[in-house]
C-alpha cells in the first residue's frame, strides 16, 4: 500500500511559485509606466540643452534657423515651435469639427437605424478603416482628395470669406491646413465612430423603451435619452481623435505645405505641423538640430499625453451625465 502524501500546510500565504508569478506579471504590467517614463526622460535629456537655451521662446517664437561656419560648426541658431504648434492644433481641430458630426451620425445609424444584416458588415468595414496605414491616407489624400478639397476650400472662401479664418491672401489653396484637416478627419472617423457606438449601445434599454412608451418618435427618443446619456462618451471619443490627429506624421506631411510662419487662415496653403517638421528636417539635420527635434518631440508627446488623459477620464465618466 502506498502511503498517502503528507498533508499540506494550511496557509493564506501564496506559494513560492505564485509569488514569482505575481512578481513577473506585476513587472510586466508596470512596463507601460517604465516606457512612458523613459520616453520623457530620454527626450528631455536630449532636448534639455535646446529648451534651456531657448527658454519660453521655444514655444512662442516661430523662427527655425541654423547657420554654420565653413567647418560645419553651428554659429547661430533659433528654434521656435509656435507656428508648428498652432498649425498642428488648427488642422486637428478642423479634423475633429468635420469628423464628429459624421461619426455621431454613423454611430446613431449603426445602433438605431441600420438593418440588422447590414450592421455587422458596416462595423467590420469601419474597423478595417481604422487599420489602414497612415501612408495610404497620405498618398490617397494627395492624389485623390486634394483636388476636391481644394475646390471645397474655394467654395468656403467664396461664400464665407468675410469670416477672418476663411480669408485667403495670397490666393493659394493647395496644401492648406484645411486639406490636411480633411485627410485627418477621414483618419479619425473610425475612432470616434467606434467610441460613440460603444457608449450609445450602453444606453439603458428601459429608458429607451420608456421614451417609446410615452409616444416618442425615434429621433425624439434619441434626443431625449441617447444623446444625454452618451454625450460625455462622444466628447471623450472626439478628444481621442484629436490626440490621434495631432500626432499624425506621414499623412499630414504629404498634403501640407510647411511654413515657419504663424497662420490662422485655414484655407491658405501654408501651415505647420510638429510631427511633419521632424520628418522634414531630420534628413538634413546635424546632431545639434536633432536635439531641437527631440525637444519638439517632447512637446508633442506632452501635448498628446494630456489630451489622451483627458479623453480617458471623460470616456470613463460616461453615463453619469444622463438622467
Amino acid at each position: 500500500m502506498t502511503k498517502a502524501p503528507a498533508p499540506r500546510e494550511i496557509t493564506t500565504q501564496p506559494r513560492r511559485s505564485d509569488r514569482i508569478f505575481r512578481r513577473i506579471v506585476t513587472g510586466g504590467g508596470l512596463s507601460s509606466l517604465g516606457i512612458l517614463g523613459l520616453i520623457t526622460l530620454f527626450l528631455g535629456y536630449r532636448g534639455y540643452e535646446i529648451i534651456a537655451s531657448e527658454g519660453l521662446s521655444f514655444i512662442t517664437s516661430s523662427d527655425w534657423t541654423v547657420s554654420y561656419d565653413e567647418n560645419g560648426n553651428v554659429t547661430d541658431s533659433q528654434f521656435g515651435l509656435a507656428a508648428m504648434l498652432i498649425g498642428t492644433i488648427l488642422s486637428a481641430i478642423v479634423a475633429v469639427v468635420v469628423a464628429v458630426p459624421v461619426s455621431v451620425a454613423m454611430a446613431l445609424y449603426l445602433n438605431f437605424y441600420s438593418p440588422h444584416a447590414l450592421k455587422k458588415y458596416l462595423i467590420a468595414v469601419i474597423d478595417m478603416m481604422a487599420a489602414f496605414p497612415s501612408i495610404l491616407f497620405g498618398i490617397w489624400g494627395f492624389l485623390v482628395l486634394m483636388p476636391s478639397a481644394e475646390y471645397w476650400g474655394k467654395l468656403l472662401n467664396k461664400y464665407l470669406g468675410f469670416i477672418p479664418i476663411f480669408e485667403v491672401n495670397p490666393y493659394i489653396f493647395t496644401r492648406s491646413p484645411f486639406i490636411a484637416g480633411m485627410v485627418l478627419a477621414i483618419m479619425i472617423i473610425p475612432i470616434i465612430t467606434s467610441v460613440s457606438r460603444e457608449v450609445f449601445s450602453q444606453t439603458p434599454l428601459d429608458r429607451i423603451q420608456a421614451a417609446y412608451a410615452l409616444g416618442a418618435t425615434r429621433w425624439s427618443m434619441i434626443k431625449a435619452v441617447v444623446i444625454p446619456y452618451g454625450k460625455s462618451g462622444v466628447i471623450g471619443g472626439a478628444m481621442l481623435g484629436l490626440g490621434r490627429a495631432m500626432g499624425e506624421t506621414v499623412a499630414v506631411y504629404t498634403v501640407l505645405n510647411i511654413v515657419f510662419q504663424i497662420n490662422f487662415k485655414i484655407l491658405l496653403g501654408a501651415g505647420g505641423n510638429v510631427a511633419s517638421l521632424i520628418i522634414l528636417r531630420f534628413g538634413e539635420a546635424n546632431l545639434f538640430e536633432i536635439k531641437a527635434l527631440m525637444a519638439a518631440g517632447l512637446v508633442l508627446f506632452g501635448l498628446t499625453l494630456v489630451i489622451n488623459a483627458f479623453a480617458a477620464v471623460i470616456v470613463r465618466r460616461t453615463g453619469s451625465s444622463g438622467r
Binding site: L36, G247, A275, M294, F301, T304, I307, N308, A312
Partner: peptide
C-alpha cells in the same frame, strides 16, 4: 493607474516612439 497608462500609451504618436529609440 496601469489601465490609464496603457490608454495613454496607445496615444503616443508614432514619430515620438521613433525619436525615443533614436535618443535612447
Amino acid at each position: 493607474p496601469i489601465r490609464f497608462l496603457v490608454q495613454a500609451m496607445s496615444g503616443v504618436p508614432s514619430i515620438v516612439a521613433g525619436l525615443f529609440i533614436l535618443s535612447a
